[in-house]
Amino acid sequence: MRTLLSLALLCAIGATAAHAVEVGEQGPNFKFDKSWNFDAAITELDQLRGKVVMVESWATW
């Protein structure tokens, strides 16, 4: 139970620490740990500049 609680607390802290990217703001760059359906040379978001990019966060659950 205690682990669950601290986990929940950690999640809450994580959620408030993150800055929500709003319309008009710059989308921060990030590195890809692994990628599928991209040229192997593309390893971070900034390399897709010049295109319209849809960053979608998803999960299997």
Binding site: G14, A15, A17, A18, H19, A20, V21, E22, V23, G24, E25, Q26, G27, P28, N29, F30, L45, D46, R49, G50, K51, V52, V53, M54, V55, E56, S57, W58, A59
Partner: peptide
């Protein structure tokens, strides 16, 4: 920590300069 996901799925569309 970069995009503050508010529920999944969620998406951000960025223009050629990276602006949302």
């Amino acid at each position: 920590s970069l995009y503050a996901t508010r529920g999944i799925p969620h998406c951000w569309v960025l223009d050629a300069d990276g602006k949302c």
